[in-house]
Structures are given as C-alpha cells and as structure tokens.
C-alpha cells in the first residue's frame, strides 16, 4: 500500500493505482473529471486532458515536483506523492482552457440532443467552463451516419474520447470501427459505412460521454429527465441482464446499462436487452434507480414530482 495526499486529504491505495482512482477512493469534489478514461476499457484515458492535476511532490524518495501538469487517469501514484486538484488555481485555469477546446467545434445543440441532461460534457462545461465563447470561426461539420439500424452517429458532437473505439475493439469480436483521418479532421467511422454487426455493439452508446452516439429506438421520444429510471433484470442468455429501464408511465422508452456516479456502466449489456425488450413483461423490476450525478437528471426531478406533484 502507498500513501498519497490529494488536495490535503490522505488516502492509502494499492501500488500501481492511478491518481484518478486514488481520488475516486476519497470521492466528492476533489475527484478530477474524466471524459475519456473508462475503467472498464483497457488503454483508455490520457486523451481529453480534463483530468490534469498538479503533482507538487513526486514521492518520498524523490520529492521534486513534476514539471508539467499530469493526466491523473494515467499517472500511477508513488508513496508520499502530493497532488493538487481543486486547490491549485493553475489546474482549474487549465481545465477551463480544456473545456474551451472541447467545446470549440461542439455544436452546442443541447436543446435537440438526446444526451442532454445526462451528458458529461454538459456537466463539465457547467462546472469548469466559461459562459462566454471566444471563437468566431465556423465549426467543423460532418454528415450524420447510421451505424446499423439502431445506432446514430452524430460526429459533430464527438469529442474524440476513443471510448467507443476501445469498446468496439475489446468487447465486440468483429472490429469495423475506428478513427479515420487526423488532427481536427479526425472522425469516428466505420470506413465505407460498414455496419457494426455485433451483439454488444450497443454499448458504444453507453460509453459515449456526449450525444455523438445515440440510441435510435429512443431518439426524440422524451427528454431524459422526464423519464423514471428503474433497476431491472431478466434472464438473458447473452449478458448479465442487469439493466436500467427508463419509464414514461408504464412504457419502457429505453434500456441502458447501470452507470455509476462516474458514468461508467457496471456491466456491458447485449443488444437484445437494449433494443428489443421494451415490454414491462420482459423485465423484473427491482427498485427506482438513484442517479448520483450532478446534471439535471440528478436533481431527482421524478422524486420531486412524486413528492410535490408535477409543479413542485
């Protein structure tokens, strides 16, 4: 076990743990935001740079500070390391700059985006961004692509976190999905518009931190904060069958994996559960799902409705 101090809070973690995961062990406000890191996907992280932190003491052995800000998701802790996240103005300034970069070409079409309300980028920009924009350049645009009949790729919204690429690579067997081109011309794609044809392809929707990959069976049906999430399960021969169903009245509008407070699914689910099982009789409902995140949805709108009625 090694001891590390993050924003003046001590924590003991196993050797090889990253700064981000050590911070998650402490929890709360000092956890750096992460747009590309996904603990269930090997090799992810390091790309979005939102989790940059300042290391003011490398370790007990070598107390020198690290010369640059480091990506907390991919830097392992050392015994005696001292890290500053929200206590460092430099880190917060840099994070603001990163948010600006991420939003530079983002269409900001939240009012018509299905992800709004549960969007990591939305949360990130409310928490760390600036309310003013400094760009007057035209934004880059792409045509929308249907990745098969169930998934819509809206590349304009993509922040190139590579999560879906890792998902396609690691949990589906036939890889036809990757990043084309380079620089700001990068796009997620299935060269020559190949369909992602795989039982687990739907998980690229769950891992997407923004609204670039959306579920076509749910598209434009409802704003997420008007739906009630419930934990549910079924005996599925392909996956664990443990999902969250999102209800409007008694209708299942969509099915997703169970996401934790950092937006990561507990278990990947199969396409049959996700896209085809939309009847209440398909599922055994367990209990209302508590969404522990900081966006609109976690204001627990539905709980308030239950408590005070729809105008509460």
């Amino acid at each position: 076990m090694v001891k590390v101090t993050i924003d003046n809070i001590d924590v003991e973690v196993e050797e090889g743990t990253t700064i981000l995961n050590a911070a998650r062990k402490i929890g709360g406000k000092i956890v750096p935001p992460a747009m590309c890191y996904y603990s269930k996907l090997a090799g992810s992280g390091g790309k979005c740079r939102t989790c940059l932190v300042k290391v003011t003491q490398g370790s007990d052995k070598d107390p020198r500070p690290m010369p640059k800000l480091v990506a907390s998701c991919s830097t392992p802790v050392q015994n005696g390391m001292i890290v500053q996240n929200i206590t460092s103005p430099e880190v917060l300034e840099t994070r603001k700059a990163i948010v600006e970069f991420l939003l530079l070409n983002h269409p900001l079409d939240c009012p018509v985006c299905d992800q709004a309300g549960e969007c990591d980028l939305q949360d990130l920009s409310y928490n760390h961004g600036s309310s003013l924009t400094r760009t007057e350049e035209p934004r880059r645009t792409f045509e929308m692509i249907d990745v098969g009949s169930k998934i819509k790729l809206h590349m304009n919204r993509c922040i190139l976190c590579y999560r879906c690429v890792y998902t396609a690579d690691q949990i589906t067997d036939k890889r036809v999905h990757g990043v084309l081109e380079r620089g700001d011309r990068c796009e997620i794609g299935t060269y020559i518009k190949n369909v992602i044809d795989n039982d687990f392809s739907g998980n690229i929707i769950d891992v997407c931190p923004v609204g670039a990959l959306t579920d076509m069976t749910f598209r434009f049906k409802s704003r997420v904060w008007f739906t009630n999430p419930y934990d549910a399960h079924r005996a599925c021969p392909k996956c664990s069958g443990k999902v969250v169903i999102w209800l409007s009245g008694n209708k299942i509008l969509r099915v997703t994996g169970r996401k934790d407070e950092y937006g990561e699914v507990e278990e990947f689910i199969c396409n049959e559960c996700r896209f085809d099982k939309k009847e209440m009789s398909d599922w055994i409902v367990e209990k209302p799902r508590k969404i522990k995140r900081n966006s609109v949805i976690s204001q627990n709108h539905y709980e308030l409705i239950n408590k005070y009625g729809s105008h509460g």
Binding site: L102, L104, E137, R182, G183, C186
Partner: peptide, 15 residues
Amino acid sequence: ESCGQCSPCREGTAW
C-alpha cells in the same frame, strides 16, 4: 500533422 488524439493540440492548432 496533429494526430488529433488529445484535445488541446487537435482543437488548438486548427483554431
């Protein structure tokens, strides 16, 4: 020539 992997370089160079 930016590979487009990390956001500051991808967006910043184009901007």
